[in-house]
Design a binder for these strands. Structure first.
Lengths: 708, 708
DNA sequence: CTGTGGGCACCAGGCCGACAA
DNA sequence: TTGTCGGCCTGGTGCCCACAG
């Protein structure tokens, strides 16, 4: 038994030490071994206790790197719950041994290579030990890479839903994922932007509606095995009637939009994000830990030691455990991660500008996540993001051939949605497109607002380093469907806006109503509390639309039929209701109203009122910021129904006759039918959905707020 | 202009120095760059003259590795002839500059990225200069690998025929490639062994004959871009009549088999092969150059210098140029390759036991090739090789999806051959299966021999390190088709043999007649002149055939019809002619005789005579060794027709009536029809080939030799 | 003549405090 | 409080000779 003090820089092992994530170098020819590793998926990304190290060969110095060394290890803690397909073995302590990867592996290893054998072994919870024979040749780096590729399971195999807290921490503070069984509106347009850069031709599918109310039947929080990019897979079931909605916890209007926003660092103090500095990302250096992070997230350090030092173990999104040396030293004293950090940076391919997230999970585990800065583009500029997404997609396709990112996949999902059939979507929160599955209550609340040109609003954006959220002020310049030809009644990107700081938000020309909050002009100064105004932003990157105002001039709506009561004429835009409503009942298939709740009486549409400055001030929305008020925040989760009855939708919505007579609309073309329809039966279409009816319930939000 | 003395171990560049093969690390996100590199194919694997080095960034020490450095280079000599598809630009000096690979490459590089632009530029032979921006981050190794993969063209793209001399040097001394336009016999059985481990089911294709006479219409010497393994792509045109044979230079029988064997180191003294020692392959060390190699292959060293040192530039099979420091030092003095050697070893992934070939080409270029030792098997043992071949094949398939190594590809080729249509085959000389396209004259000469059990022979094998060739003695134990059920008339692996040293050649149980030379028992001692007898061998690895003797007992031939004149009864095997010849004329499609030259008269088959020991001695073949006789060798190329008229096939074959009445045969089932056939016209089948007719001309070789 | 091993120098990686923002 | 830098130590790489087969 010969002790090798140091044999490989990536694999520094001493007897009795415990090592994390041993990337096992495999001899080139051992195809079988690689396949075996792949079949085991994550089993090797485990905490490994080194029992003995043996060096074979005649000499251990000059040819040490060619000697086959035997590393006898105990896998003391499996860091991931999966051994083989479908088998969960979380928490199994296991030891693997007597596995010889030498060239003559074939005969003696076939037994071990059989995944079913592994499955059985783990069922019995018997201890197994692996004698891992490492080829410490000069090609270790190469081999390590190829093995890591092999070990890393493809997306199609691993669908484990990872820790929701870590997922959200990586996703960033802007992301709001709907709850399981909650209602969302699915927007095919948004899906197309997200998954196919908007380059989806819906023209051949006239039955696809602009939005479909769905129940979230499943949601899996996942992460790309190569890039660690978090994404979610959502199962959606189009809703035919409200009986599907037993577990809906989404009955309160008006709160959804910003309820969980800004949770990071405030409502969820157990996580901390830091953007890597040059020194952090520099290969030779360590990681400078902000004091707040070290004191609130990391395990308590024994400051009586000199120097105070400890080992940090942090789990990443894949369940891999990373080991860091945490030391408190220097003058003045500061917290640093030294040993292990460089390895992490290299493995995750981090560069300055990327962010790292430390999170203390509810079970006490320390987790580490990664948020990559947008490469090759300075935040706001470029309009690249869609393209980059598609490129990644193409690579992905060749790997798992799932087709998540093609126009076809969007069409397929949208067709299923239109037909009332369950479907699946993938959502990448780090992509710079707005969420296309939006909490129904948020949409409803937003659409209940009488949007009109001239309105002042604020909208939240992530700063480029993803560490902060900034609010930007803007003015609604126009209200009309973003694609009037195809989706004339779609609220998607309904608002055309101008920004108070247009240079920073050049590419953000149209926004979704549920992403903005109306504000008074006077509050502009103090709504951006923690961000210097010029900080670079991460904003949704809409594909460049051609100017839509020109389309308006050429659309089918005669100018003569436009009313004038609340004419926002100073923008030259028309946001009035359409007086000849019946003439444009060209609602797409599946949009007919068969929801008893929404059978509001037919009435003559009353044009919305022009909102003057005074009214706007009185309409200032504070609900999105309500969680900044500690006294309110405490009770709102449990008592929001009672506390804000004015926003209730289900139960007894408070609706005045006046409110019922109003409807939201954009310009003339964006008018939703909200009169009673000779109700088609359920057989009229598999998805005679209630989207319109939901919007039909809208009230003037300003008015309600005034009442309360 | 800041000088970076050393910035990266794989890229050590000083001003004014010339570097070879700069693997360019590319920032991760630069997909466009990678595509561009791929489109340029080999352009970057060139001799590069460093003009200037610039380091940008605030500091050049601690963050040097993150700083983008600009390397201003001149590509002084393009090492490969291809820039873009179809464009040959050998010898173009070109300089590339002003190419910025920074993140914002897209806009400014699109022009450069256009392959057609490069095509034009190279047409004009204008000087271009590239400012190559290198991301010297810690991920250089990773990136280098990915870029190398990108740069390396796939097989499907590059079909450049590489230097024949280097190809043959890498292929080894055993390999005999047919000449362009020469005649070969194509053996589907051999093809199946070579390309699909023999696991090809020909059962559904009864029209496929066991051999097809072909003209070699094309031959390309190629090398695997990943492994450097040499292989050849051959175009074959089945021959319908001898008029196709205008340029046939293969008219002399009896010489072909060993004419070009042992050329390396003897007839071709400008190449030298050495098997790498541990020290050679060891990462820390250099390469110990044998004196002979240094003095005969390498450029002349100036021994007056102290120490004598020079730079060696050697081109590999891909045309890449490798640079080595050649020094003559130490006590006692010896030749060493130092700087550059380690890089070569790592890049080629060489290990001890692999061989390296240095060759001085006719044009004076120094070339370097690689011959890998068989991994994972000790030479003779295992029977792996076929399997390994197939595994490599599967990998290959996923890469170029060419299907060179499937049973289907063999079936396809064999069907085309059977139908007289041109086809293509790939031959990997380092695979351990016999050549399946064999010089026609060799086959004819071999089949003219009256093979019979008990005959003594020798056969050449390569030693495991590929450096030498050893001759092994054996005895023919049985003569019958290797697969009597399907290929009853195939000469492929006709001879079942026993070896004088059976332990070394356990898996070689059946051999092709044209690969062996008959010898007398007495010459056994001195025919293995330059190899210790126990040196490990590299031998063809036939798939394990089940014992064929049992098949014989169950075949369709009644025992009663077997003659007994030359009964080699001491082996219990029957090598007599079939007296009821007409009953087994079940020749496969395409085997009918329509060759006027071969329309030998029908006659009663005379059973072959038993060869007693005395006769065998008199039959000793010396033709195969004739080139060892300097006086003979000098003239044989030009005058072989005249010098050995007894072996002529075309022209005026010397055939006595007795000779014509004889035919070669193995056991009863391996009888070729050589009587006149009611000749089918050409329409009888596209490939009514003359294979049988060729063999129909056979004479008793023993007899002919006795006459001369 | 050449294979092998130890000596040794160089350098990239990595940990440190100093210093300043 | 923490980002950046130079100092400095260390281990790995690679060139050298000695020695021996």
């Amino acid at each position: 038994m010969l002790r090798c003090k140091s044999w490989n820089s990536s694999l520094r092992v001493d007897l009795g030490s415990s090592v994390c994530y041993v990337p096992i170098p495999i001899p080139i020819c051992s195809r079988l071994v690689r396949e075996w590793l792949a079949s085991l998926e994550h089993v090797l990304t485990a905490l490994i206790e080194v029992e003995s190290i043996e060096c074979r060969g005649d000499h251990c110095r000059s040819h040490m790197k060619k000697v086959f060394c035997s590393l006898n290890v105990s896998v003391t803690k499996l860091s991931t719950g999966r051994l083989v397909n479908g088998l969960s073995c979380d928490g199994i302590d296991m030891v693997i041994k007597d596995l010889d990867l030498e060239p003559k592996i074939d005969a003696m290893m076939r037994d071990f290579l059989d995944p079913s054998r592994w499955k059985e072994l783990s069922k019995e919870k018997s201890d197994i030990t692996v004698l891992i024979v490492l080829d410490l040749s000069s090609r270790v780096a190469d081999l390590k890479m190829s093995v890591m590729n092999s070990v890393r399971p493809s997306n199609s195999v691993v669908e484990k839903s990872l820790d929701s807290q870590l997922w959200h921490a990586c996703a960033g503070g802007m992301v709001q994922m709907p709850l399981l069984n909650s209602k969302v509106f699915y927007f095919p347009q948004g899906h197309a932007e997200h998954a196919a850069s908007g380059k989806v031709n819906f023209g051949d599918f006239p039955q696809i509606p602009p939005y479909v109310l769905c129940r979230v039947s499943a949601i899996k929080f996942m992460a790309d095995p190569d890039t660690d990019e978090v994404y979610a897979k959502m199962g959606l079931v189009p809703l035919k009637d409200h009986n599907d909605f037993g577990s809906d916890d989404d009955g309160v209007l008006g709160y959804g939009q910003n309820k969980n926003r800004n949770v990071e660092n405030q409502e969820n103090p157990t996580s901390f994000a830091k953007t890597l500095t040059q020194s952090d990302a520099n290969n030779g250096g360590g990681f400078s830990v902000p004091r707040y992070c070290a004191e609130t997230i990391f395990p308590k350090l024994d400051y009586t030691a000199d120097p105070p030092v400890q080992t940090i173990l942090a789990k990443d999104v894949h369940g891999q455990i990373w080991k860091f040396r945490h030391i408190y030293r220097g003058t003045p004293r500061r917290h640093l991660l030294t040993t292990g950090w460089s390895n992490f940076v290299n493995n995750k391919k981090l560069v300055a500008g990327d962010s790292i997230v430390f999170l203390r999970a509810d079970n006490g585990d320390l987790c580490v996540g990664v948020r990559r800065a947008k490469r090759g583009g300075n935040g706001v500029g470029g309009g690249y993001c869609g393209l980059i997404r598609e490129d990644e997609n193409n690579n992905k396709l060749s790997k798992d051939s799932k087709g998540k990112f093609t126009g076809e996949s969007v069409i397929e999902a949208a067709k299923l949605a239109a037909n009332g059939k369950p479907f699946e979507v993938f959502y990448y929160p780090r992509a710079s497109t707005p969420e296309f599955c939006v909490k129904a209550s948020s949409v409803k609340a937003a659409m209940r607002i009488q949007w009109c040109a001239g309105m002042r609003f604020k909208m939240a954006f992530e700063t480029e380093d993803s560490s902060q959220i900034s609010w930007f002020m803007g003015t609604v310049s126009s209200v009309h469907a973003s694609d009037q030809a195809r989706w004339s009644n779609s609220p998607w990107r309904l608002l055309q806006v101008t920004w108070d700081e247009p240079d920073l938000l050049q590419n953000v020309k149209r926004v979704n109503p549920w992403l903005v909050e109306m504000v008074s002009n006077m509050s502009a100064v103090h709504i951006s509390p923690f961000s210097p105004p010029r900080k670079k932003l991460r904003v949704p990157q809409p594909p460049d639309f051609s100017p839509i105002s020109s389309l308006i001039a050429n659309n089918n709506i005669p100018a003569s039929i436009q009313g004038a009561r609340h004419n926002s004429s100073h923008f030259g835009l028309n946001n009035n209701h359409h007086p000849e409503f019946d003439k444009i009942q060209n609602l797409p298939y599946g949009m007919l109203n068969n929801d008893p709740l929404s059978r509001v009486p037919s009435k003559t549409l009353e044009p919305s009122k022009k909102i003057n400055e005074k009214e706007k001030d009185s309409c200032l929305l504070t609900m999105g910021n309500s969680n900044k008020n500690p006294s309110l925040k405490k009770n709102e989760d449990n008592e929001k129904d009672k506390r804000k009855p004015v926003f209730m939708l289900f139960g007894q919505p408070i609706l005045t006759k006046q409110q019922l007579s109003e409807s939201w609309s954009g310009d003339g073309s964006v008018v939703l039918q909200n009169g009673p329809v000779e109700t088609s039966s359920d057989e009229a279409g598999p998805c005679s959905s209630e989207q319109k009816s939901e919007f039909g319930l809208e009230t003037s939000h300003c008015k309600v707020l005034t009442e309360s």
